[in-house]
Amino acid sequence: MNKRELIEKAAEATGQPVKVVTAVLDAVLDTIQTAVANDDTVSITGWGKFELAKRAARTARNPHTGEPMPLAPTVRPVFRAGTGFVGLTRQKHAASK
């Protein structure tokens, strides 16, 4: 499912116009992105948590030469599914087996 399909499903489920649902979804996604970029955690109980994963500077090896090479510290956004989300996923997949 892509963003457009998600918006159409949400508009159908809520009875709201597609324009309104698009504006709300864009605002929610922008808020999550801004919060995580500012090193905040966004938690939605039972659904999941958006946060920033930090990796310290380290030394790695070049696979071709075997030479050590320094790697700078990095950050990346991560999503951790909540218990409700995980439970529903497991329930749906267990029923299909």
Score class of each variant (00 low, 15 high):
residue 1 M to Q: 01
residue 1 M to P: 00
residue 4 R to A: 13
residue 5 E to Y: 06
residue 7 I to G: 03
residue 8 E to R: 11
residue 8 E to A: 13
residue 9 K to V: 14
residue 10 A to S: 05
residue 11 A to R: 07
residue 11 A to S: 13
residue 12 E to H: 12
residue 14 T to M: 11
residue 14 T to N: 10
residue 16 Q to F: 15
residue 20 V to W: 07
residue 20 V to G: 06
residue 21 V to A: 01
residue 21 V to I: 15
residue 21 V to R: 02
residue 22 T to F: 09
residue 22 T to E: 15
residue 23 A to L: 11
residue 23 A to M: 11
residue 25 L to H: 07
residue 25 L to P: 00
residue 25 L to N: 02
residue 25 L to M: 12
residue 26 D to R: 11
residue 27 A to S: 13
residue 28 V to N: 00
residue 28 V to C: 08
residue 29 L to W: 06
residue 30 D to S: 15
residue 32 I to G: 05
residue 33 Q to I: 11
residue 33 Q to Y: 02
residue 34 T to D: 10
residue 34 T to G: 01
residue 34 T to V: 13
residue 35 A to C: 10
residue 36 V to N: 03
residue 37 A to Q: 12
residue 37 A to S: 11
residue 38 N to G: 12
residue 38 N to F: 02
residue 39 D to T: 07
residue 40 D to F: 09
residue 43 S to A: 14
residue 43 S to G: 03
residue 44 I to F: 15
residue 45 T to G: 03
residue 45 T to P: 01
residue 46 G to Y: 04
residue 47 W to P: 01
residue 47 W to F: 15
residue 48 G to V: 15
residue 48 G to W: 06
residue 50 F to A: 08
residue 50 F to T: 00
residue 53 A to M: 09
residue 54 K to W: 06
residue 54 K to F: 09
residue 55 R to H: 13
residue 55 R to P: 02
residue 56 A to V: 13
residue 57 A to W: 12
residue 57 A to H: 04
residue 58 R to A: 09
residue 59 T to Q: 08
residue 59 T to L: 03
residue 59 T to G: 01
residue 59 T to Y: 01
residue 61 R to Y: 09
residue 62 N to L: 06
residue 62 N to F: 04
residue 62 N to A: 07
residue 63 P to C: 04
residue 63 P to F: 03
residue 63 P to V: 07
residue 64 H to A: 14
residue 64 H to Q: 14
residue 64 H to V: 01
residue 64 H to C: 00
residue 64 H to K: 14
residue 64 H to F: 03
residue 65 T to D: 03
residue 67 E to Q: 13
residue 67 E to K: 13
residue 67 E to H: 08
residue 68 P to V: 10
residue 68 P to D: 08
residue 68 P to C: 06
residue 69 M to Q: 10
residue 72 A to D: 11
residue 73 P to K: 12
residue 74 T to D: 00
residue 76 R to A: 10
residue 76 R to P: 00
residue 77 P to G: 08
residue 80 R to I: 10
residue 80 R to H: 13
residue 80 R to K: 15
residue 80 R to Y: 05
residue 82 G to K: 08
residue 82 G to Q: 05
residue 82 G to R: 05
residue 83 T to M: 12
residue 83 T to L: 14
residue 84 G to A: 08
residue 85 F to H: 02
residue 85 F to M: 04
residue 86 V to A: 10
residue 89 T to A: 13
residue 89 T to K: 08
residue 91 Q to D: 13
residue 92 K to E: 12
residue 92 K to S: 09
residue 93 H to C: 05
residue 94 A to V: 05
residue 95 A to E: 15
residue 95 A to R: 11
residue 96 S to H: 08
residue 96 S to V: 12
residue 97 K to C: 00
residue 97 K to Y: 09
